[in-house]
Protein backbone atom coordinates (compact mmCIF):
# COMPACT_ATOMS: atom_id res chain seq x y z
CA UNK A 1 0.00 0.00 0.00
CA UNK A 2 1.26 3.46 -0.91
CA UNK A 3 1.57 6.10 1.79
CA UNK A 4 -1.34 7.95 0.21
CA UNK A 5 -3.51 4.86 0.53
CA UNK A 6 -2.40 4.50 4.13
CA UNK A 7 -3.51 8.06 4.71
CA UNK A 8 -6.86 7.33 3.11
CA UNK A 9 -7.22 4.23 5.26
CA UNK A 10 -6.48 6.31 8.32
CA UNK A 11 -9.41 8.55 7.48
CA UNK A 12 -11.85 5.67 7.11
CA UNK A 13 -14.40 5.34 9.91
CA UNK A 14 -13.26 3.17 12.77
CA UNK A 15 -16.59 1.36 12.81
CA UNK A 16 -15.52 -1.74 10.84
CA UNK A 17 -12.70 -2.42 13.28
CA UNK A 18 -13.19 -5.27 15.71
CA UNK A 19 -14.22 -4.23 19.17
CA UNK A 20 -15.46 -7.24 21.02
CA UNK A 21 -15.02 -7.33 24.78
CA UNK A 22 -13.91 -10.91 24.43
CA UNK A 23 -11.22 -10.20 21.85
CA UNK A 24 -8.11 -12.20 22.74
CA UNK A 25 -5.14 -10.22 23.96
CA UNK A 26 -2.89 -11.99 21.47
CA UNK A 27 -3.88 -13.47 18.15
CA UNK A 28 -0.80 -15.64 17.74
CA UNK A 29 1.69 -17.05 20.24
CA UNK A 30 4.59 -15.04 18.83
CA UNK A 31 2.71 -11.83 19.68
CA UNK A 32 2.54 -12.91 23.30
CA UNK A 33 6.24 -13.79 23.27
CA UNK A 34 7.38 -10.46 21.88
CA UNK A 35 5.19 -8.66 24.39
CA UNK A 36 6.57 -10.71 27.30
CA UNK A 37 10.20 -10.23 26.21
CA UNK A 38 9.68 -6.47 26.12
CA UNK A 39 8.12 -6.40 29.57
CA UNK A 40 10.86 -8.67 30.98
CA UNK A 41 13.70 -6.62 29.49
CA UNK A 42 12.14 -3.45 30.81
CA UNK A 43 11.77 -5.02 34.26
CA UNK A 44 15.45 -5.87 34.34
CA UNK A 45 16.26 -2.27 33.47
CA UNK A 46 17.58 -2.62 29.92
CA UNK A 47 15.54 0.43 28.90
CA UNK A 48 13.03 2.85 30.37
CA UNK A 49 9.42 2.80 29.31
CA UNK A 50 9.84 6.25 27.77
CA UNK A 51 12.68 4.93 25.62
CA UNK A 52 10.46 2.05 24.62
CA UNK A 53 7.50 4.27 23.72
CA UNK A 54 9.75 6.40 21.56
CA UNK A 55 11.29 3.37 19.84
CA UNK A 56 7.85 1.83 19.26
CA UNK A 57 6.52 5.12 17.92
CA UNK A 58 9.46 5.20 15.49
CA UNK A 59 8.72 1.64 14.32
CA UNK A 60 5.07 2.53 13.75
CA UNK A 61 5.97 5.63 11.74
CA UNK A 62 8.48 3.63 9.67
CA UNK A 63 5.87 0.96 8.93
CA UNK A 64 3.33 3.58 7.91
CA UNK A 65 5.88 5.25 5.68
CA UNK A 66 6.48 1.86 4.07
CA UNK A 67 2.77 1.52 3.32
CA UNK A 68 1.34 -0.34 6.33
CA UNK A 69 -2.31 0.78 6.67
CA UNK A 70 -1.77 0.25 10.41
CA UNK A 71 -5.21 -1.06 11.24
CA UNK A 72 -4.15 -2.33 14.64
CA UNK A 73 -3.59 -5.90 13.47
CA UNK A 74 0.09 -5.25 12.80
CA UNK A 75 0.69 -3.75 16.23
CA UNK A 76 2.88 -6.57 17.54
CA UNK A 77 4.82 -6.57 14.30
CA UNK A 78 5.72 -3.00 15.23
CA UNK A 79 6.70 -4.27 18.69
CA UNK A 80 8.92 -6.90 17.14
CA UNK A 81 10.67 -4.39 14.88
CA UNK A 82 11.08 -1.98 17.80
CA UNK A 83 12.44 -4.69 20.08
CA UNK A 84 14.99 -5.78 17.47
CA UNK A 85 16.06 -2.15 17.17
CA UNK A 86 16.21 -1.73 20.93
CA UNK A 87 18.36 -4.81 21.64
CA UNK A 88 20.77 -3.74 18.89
CA UNK A 89 20.91 -0.22 20.32
CA UNK A 90 21.66 -1.63 23.77
CA UNK A 91 24.40 -3.90 22.41
CA UNK A 92 22.59 -7.12 23.30
CA UNK A 93 22.48 -8.63 19.84
CA UNK A 94 22.78 -7.29 16.32
CA UNK A 95 21.01 -8.01 13.06
CA UNK A 96 23.60 -10.52 11.87
CA UNK A 97 23.24 -12.91 14.81
CA UNK A 98 19.45 -12.56 14.64
CA UNK A 99 19.44 -13.48 10.95
CA UNK A 100 21.70 -16.51 11.51
CA UNK A 101 19.53 -17.71 14.34
CA UNK A 102 16.35 -17.16 12.35
CA UNK A 103 17.73 -19.37 9.57
CA UNK A 104 18.61 -22.03 12.16
CA UNK A 105 15.05 -22.03 13.51
CA UNK A 106 13.71 -22.30 9.98
CA UNK A 107 15.86 -25.37 9.30
CA UNK A 108 14.88 -26.80 12.67
CA UNK A 109 11.17 -26.34 11.93
CA UNK A 110 11.47 -28.08 8.58
CA UNK A 111 13.33 -30.96 10.17
CA UNK A 112 10.68 -31.44 12.86
CA UNK A 113 7.85 -33.89 12.19
CA UNK A 114 4.34 -32.45 12.53
CA UNK A 115 2.96 -32.32 16.03
CA UNK A 116 6.31 -32.46 17.77
CA UNK A 117 7.87 -29.53 19.55
CA UNK A 118 10.20 -27.52 17.37
CA UNK A 119 13.58 -27.36 19.08
CA UNK A 120 16.69 -25.57 17.94
CA UNK A 121 18.57 -28.87 18.32
CA UNK A 122 16.50 -30.21 15.41
CA UNK A 123 18.45 -27.96 13.07
CA UNK A 124 20.62 -30.34 11.02
CA UNK A 125 23.47 -27.82 11.32
CA UNK A 126 23.00 -27.38 15.08
CA UNK A 127 26.36 -27.06 16.77
CA UNK A 128 25.28 -26.89 20.39
CA UNK A 129 24.66 -23.93 22.64
CA UNK A 130 27.15 -21.11 22.95
Amino acid sequence: MKPLDALAAALEPVAPLPRSEAEPAFREPWEASVFAMTVALHQRGLFTWSEWAECLGGAIRAAQAAGDPDLGDTYYQHWLAALETMVARKGVTGAELLAQRKAAWDRAAHATPHGQPILLENDPLFAGGT
Binding site: E28, W30, L98, A99, W105, D106, H114
Partner: peptide, 25 residues
Protein backbone atom coordinates in the same frame (compact mmCIF):
# COMPACT_ATOMS: atom_id res chain seq x y z
CA UNK B 1 5.14 -34.02 6.82
CA UNK B 2 7.22 -31.40 8.54
CA UNK B 3 6.66 -28.18 10.40
CA UNK B 4 7.10 -24.58 9.37
CA UNK B 5 7.01 -21.28 11.22
CA UNK B 6 5.91 -17.90 9.92
CA UNK B 7 8.51 -15.19 9.37
CA UNK B 8 7.41 -13.36 12.49
CA UNK B 9 7.45 -16.52 14.61
CA UNK B 10 10.98 -17.25 13.37
CA UNK B 11 12.20 -13.76 14.21
CA UNK B 12 10.67 -14.00 17.68
CA UNK B 13 12.21 -17.41 18.34
CA UNK B 14 15.58 -16.17 17.14
CA UNK B 15 15.44 -13.21 19.49
CA UNK B 16 14.08 -15.20 22.41
CA UNK B 17 16.65 -17.99 22.15
CA UNK B 18 19.49 -15.47 22.06
CA UNK B 19 18.11 -13.52 25.03
CA UNK B 20 17.73 -16.74 27.03
CA UNK B 21 21.26 -17.89 26.17
CA UNK B 22 22.73 -14.57 27.19
CA UNK B 23 20.78 -14.62 30.41
CA UNK B 24 18.62 -11.58 29.70
CA UNK B 25 15.31 -13.39 30.10
Amino acid sequence: EHSALSGNALRVRALESILVEKGYV
